[in-house]
Design a protein around this nucleic acid. Structure first.
Length: 213
DNA sequence: ATCCCGAGGG
DNA sequence: CCCTCTGGAT
């Protein structure tokens, strides 16, 4: 089975079996999305959505957030994972937005990753969501699921996985495929004991094959 | 008890 | 490359 055939099989199954997403990050603009994604590491969207309204009310844009102090922002996000790091990252991010990017969220991955708290995964989310750029944000779910079902081959790093996925998935399907891979990884193809009994991809799955030969 | 939709630093 | 940062959900 070629990667193209494998992808087409996977896509078809996803289209017919994947439920609509329940929770998603709430935002009104690029700045808000950037804040929300930075906060989302190791944390549910639901919990992020509970805190962002308070952040956006007090710090609606980069100029406001750049002037925030650690002590006033920390309490707002203290119930999110890594509050110390995230508080510093958010303020530092806003300050760099002011210093280098005119207070606006930049539109390229190369610029975005310069911002504190913004790595490749976050930058790919921003560019793909805001500008519909055909970028694949590879998080732990996308990495694991792609490897198991053979959408990637021997990818050692998330960057390698990203490049392989970009190559084998049609541009216009990257965004939705990313979403499906996340959902599949979260609910079915979980890290520990994947629920292969409810998965329709087993006939194409490398992981399933190695576990059952 | 154990796991989780990252990023930065050594 | 490996470690740390962290609280909340289950």
């Amino acid at each position: 089975m070629t990667k193209k055939q494998r992808y087409e099989f996977v896509l078809d199954w996803f289209e017919h079996h994947m439920p609509e997403a329940e929770t998603e990050l709430l935002y009104d603009n690029a700045f808000q999305l950037l804040v929300a994604v930075i906060l989302s590491a190791q944390c549910t969207d639901k919990r992020v959505n509970m805190t962002t309204p308070f952040i956006f009310a007090r710090y609606p844009d980069a100029p406001a957030l750049a002037k925030a102090t650690f002590d006033e922002l920390f309490p707002i996000i203290k119930s999110i994972s890594y509050p110390n790091n995230k508080t510093k990252h958010l303020i530092g991010m806003a300050q760099m937005l002011m210093e280098r990017f005119g207070g606006e969220v930049p539109h390229t991955v190369e610029e975005l990753v310069q911002l504190p708290g913004v790595g490749r995964k976050t930058a790919n989310v921003i560019t793909s969501v805001i500008d519909a750029q055909p970028n694949m944000a590879v998080d732990t779910h996308v990495f694991r699921v792609s490897a198991r079902i053979g959408l990637t081959t021997n990818a050692k790093t998330v960057l390698q996985a990203e490049q392989q996925l970009i190559k084998s998935i049609p541009k216009e399907k990257i965004h939705i495929t990313h979403h499906w891979l996340i959902l599949h990884g979260r609910y079915t193809c979980v890290a520990r004991k994947p629920k292969c009994e409810i998965c329709g991809l087993t006939q194409a799955c490398k992981y399933y094959k190695t576990m059952n030969d």
